[in-house]
Simulated scan of single mutants.
Amino acid sequence: MVELKLNGQTRSIDVPADMPLLWVLRDELGLTGTKFGCGLAQCGACTVHVDGVATRSCVTAVGDIAGSSVTTIEGAKDKVAQAVMDAWVKLDVAQCGYCQPGQVMSAIALLKDNPAPSDADIDGAMAGNICRCATYHRIRAGIKQAASTLGA
């Protein structure tokens, strides 16, 4: 049994300790907002927050984070998350949308660490998130809009 605080609720999950967090979320718990992209922590589609840090769930063994607090896109509901999601909608950031949960989770982590990021800060923080539709300019604009909404 592995115990996590998942989206604010303590959960005990009967899975092997070496099972990737991504598969625990998707296959065991039905939280399908977190996406599988590459399985190598290269694309960012599987990004979640573990103790507030943007983390690639495809390469994170659930046993390694036992007792940690995990937030998925389904549980991202604070004021920073809402500002990011509102900006994404207002600016029509997503095209196909597949990578967007990971993009949003990385953007939230960035704004929590740096409420007034420069273009270079945004590019650096988002570099690990690939968008096959190449909406990078809209992603950057969305992060700037969210920062502005939050008062940066």
Rank of each mutant, 00 (worst) to 15 (best):
G128C: 05
G30R: 06
T135K: 00
L91A: 06
A147K: 09
S106H: 06
D14R: 03
P20Q: 02
S68E: 13
I65K: 07
Q103W: 04
A141T: 00
D27R: 07
G52I: 04
L22N: 14
I65T: 00
I139T: 07
S118V: 09
S106I: 04
I13R: 06
Q145K: 12
S69A: 15
M19V: 12
G151A: 00
G151C: 11
R11C: 02
L31V: 01
S118P: 07
K5T: 15
A66K: 15
A152L: 13
G33R: 01
V70C: 05
K79R: 15
G37D: 01
G124E: 14
E28H: 13
T71F: 10
G30V: 00
Q100K: 01
K112C: 10
T71N: 13
T71A: 04
I73M: 02
A147P: 00
Q95H: 08
A76F: 01
L22P: 14
L31T: 10
S57I: 03
A41G: 05
L91H: 11
L6K: 02
A109S: 15
G52V: 09
C133W: 08
T72I: 02
A134K: 04
K35V: 08
G44Y: 06
E3V: 01
R140H: 03
L110R: 03
S148V: 14
D123S: 12
K77N: 15
T10M: 09
A76Y: 05
E3I: 06
K112R: 10
V84L: 07
V93C: 07
G39R: 12
K79I: 13
Q145G: 02
A66D: 12
D123R: 15
I65E: 00
Q145I: 00
L29Y: 08
A81M: 01
P16D: 14
I108H: 12
V84R: 10
A45V: 09
A107V: 04
K144D: 05
K112N: 09
A83N: 13
G37M: 14
G39M: 06
K90G: 04
M85C: 04
S57P: 04
A120E: 15
L110P: 10
A146F: 00
A125W: 01
G75W: 08
V70E: 08
A120P: 11
A147F: 08
S118A: 04
V24L: 13
A87I: 06
A127N: 07
T55F: 14
T135A: 12
S118R: 07
Q100R: 02
E3D: 11
V62I: 12
Q95W: 03
A66S: 14
G33H: 00
S148I: 11
G30I: 00
D86P: 03
R132F: 02
Q103R: 02
L91S: 10
D78A: 05
P117G: 01
L29S: 09
G39A: 04
